[in-house]
Design a protein around this nucleic acid. Sequence first.
DNA 1: CATGGCTTGACCGAAGTGGTCAAAGGGAGG
DNA 2: CCTCCCTTTGACCACTTCGGTCAAGCCATG
Lengths: 205, 205
Amino acid sequence: MAENFEALPLDKQQRILNAAIEVFAQNEYKRASTDDIAAKAGISKGLLFYYFKNKKQLYLYTYNYVEEKVTETVTDAHFGEITDLFDLLDYSARKKYGLMAKYPHILEFAVRTFYAHSDEISCSLNGNMENAAQSSFAKYCSHIDTSKFRDDVNPVEIMEMLVWMTDGYMHDKQRSGVLDLDLLHRDYKRWSAIFKRIMYKEEYL
Amino acid sequence: MAENFEALPLDKQQRILNAAIEVFAQNEYKRASTDDIAAKAGISKGLLFYYFKNKKQLYLYTYNYVEEKVTETVTDAHFGEITDLFDLLDYSARKKYGLMAKYPHILEFAVRTFYAHSDEISCSLNGNMENAAQSSFAKYCSHIDTSKFRDDVNPVEIMEMLVWMTDGYMHDKQRSGVLDLDLLHRDYKRWSAIFKRIMYKEEYL
DNA sequence: CATGGCTTGACCGAAGTGGTCAAAGGGAGG
DNA sequence: CCTCCCTTTGACCACTTCGGTCAAGCCATG
């Protein structure tokens, strides 16, 4: 399936997939229009149906592609080697933004598919992204060196705060169209410094 | 205009407006379906067009209503009397969540209208919510007693962080369908305590 | 029973939908 | 220059959904 598509130059594949991701991310399956996808990808609708035999197959292909990319980003041998919480967060934030730079709407897509699987397509999905993300999240944290934390601090709580903050931050930046990886990283560094001051014992600052 | 509608019992008005807010929040103007709005409000489409002569008027009415509610929430004499930053944030968070409890999708609506005004309806809008919010934001802060802040801390930066965090938090809670005002407030109190520890001089903790 | 304001849902033309297909492009090889 | 064949187009189709209408029913009041 989709052999013709996969024989395409990578940048054209990406253009089409990004168009599909965006439209499927912003509209539920039924309302997501193949006309829109084709237009956003800069190809004719006929060509879209030349690559994918119908809308459903296009969706499933997009879904699996996104799942693969997310898993690929999230499953990384390097994670297991990091023992400092902030180094880990920094590293994963970098990876996350790397992904977002390439596929601006990939997370919206992931969130939507997780929270609202249409009846028409809920069958025949390979797995579940969010679950994968969740379980590997637990895996990361098992390597963290907790001896650096102050006794009066709850690391889970602080992590939650950081996650929410990152989420809100990205939300904001994406809305205003700015997605500068370097700026992002500088901001994140500043945050880390502040949170570190709360979480870590004096000797680790 | 819409005299019939305004003669309705308030709870029915609210049901209809909430339906409109939700559908207009989740779809752009053109894709937002009056069928959906009527169904979500629990009335027939005929009745919807009995109250509002067409989709555009329904949208404009909803827009003005939302703008009024937001401004009303944001413009509050009490704000000017609060000099402690965290008290102020606490107070405004309460108000914000009060609004959200009544109109769960009102902020989505506000954000969407601000960032994507369709050509079809961009004309004849009373004002601009976001601008109102922004300018009054500056007004609040003018009353804040900055002598409590440590010298090595940038209040604006911390405020930004808090705003982003609240945003991400709400995003998360709304996604999972939980919107418990009390829980929310307890969480916010915990955050405040943490941020206070960073921002304030020892004697104010 | 009659009046008159709510309320319904079948209905309309227009626009948009997923999907098809004949024909046009265009590059490679003769 | 022609042929072959894969890629690409966009007009087209049947069908659904859209905003909007309206004749008909509902129902409280007198």
